[in-house]
Design a binder for these strands. Structure first.
Lengths: 153, 153
DNA sequence: ACTGAAAGGCCGGCCAA
DNA sequence: TTGGCCGGCCTTTCAGT
């Protein structure tokens, strides 16, 4: 059987592999094999297992928003008073790709979103859409102080 | 000349390429060449340019924090009253790899952080460290509603 | 579960346009 | 800047342990 979702115990080698492939997502199997001191075949087998189990969810290139025209980054918190109107939130998320991240959280803010924008005009359009769902608070981001991969304990 | 940092105008093909490598960071050059309908050499040249310009900053595997033992995710907001004590923040960031993201922002909260934790005990240790720098507010994350790549305008 | 070898495919440098 | 060719490396598969 395949056992796609269960969490098997990860050993030291798996940890090293996860760490390596998070640091360099384009590392070749040979590279990874060398860093975790294992044969290429074994490395591939472990990697495929991690992918199949959903522990590795995806591989992605990261790009610098500033260099592609987004001068601004902001955090928008939003309350929703009545019944949770997920459909409205989903609609705005689909309409506005600049909303790059959205979390549903406890506390006063029901949703926390991270937004990139080409300028204040652009940001205003997005927050206007959100403000129709519930009261929002917008903070501009001065600096991304840290953006780290998930540690493997 | 190399012109490492300036922003050249990106054309349609560059947009398509950026979109493609964000969706699949492990796509081969042949794959990418096929999707952007270009030769392999040309694809490689453009990709290298994007990397050299710092538009593509890195490649990474994404892993599911839950499946590696992090049952909790939280957002911590922190004020800093007096002079900005970046060194103290940096120290905690280095000590606690579970703080996977940290933004310095405008508004009442000076810092916004995203944290993964194995349980409440783990989370408590981290927030205790942060609370020594300034007053904090901690929200637990119910769900990551969206986590999208940066759009290319 | 890991190693090693063989076959095929892909990458990365070169030159031509 | 793009396309084509070629040498070398990587991936993949398959025995073997």
């Amino acid at each position: 059987m395949t056992n796609g979702g269960a969490l098997r115990e990860l050993d030291e080698v798996d940890h090293a592999l996860l760490e390596a492939v998070q640091r360099d997502g384009r590392a070749t199997l040979s590279d990874l094999a060398a860093t975790i001191r294992l044969g290429v075949s074994a490395t591939r087998a472990r990697l495929q297992t991690l992918e199949r189990q959903g522990i590795i969810t995806s591989y992605a290139a990261h790009i610098d928003p500033e260099r592609v025209g987004y001068a601004l980054r902001a955090v928008v918190r939003m309350r929703v008073n009545g019944p949770l109107l997920d459909s409205q939130v989903t609609a705005v998320l689909e309409k506005r790709p600049q909303i790059v991240r959205c979390l549903r959280v406890t506390g006063e803010s029901c949703y926390m979103m991270e937004v990139v924008a080409t300028g204040m005009r652009d940001l205003e359009e997005i927050t206007d859409d959100l403000a129709q769902i519930g009261p929002i608070t917008t903070d501009l981001v001065y600096e991304v102080v840290a953006d780290k991969p998930t540690p493997v304990p």
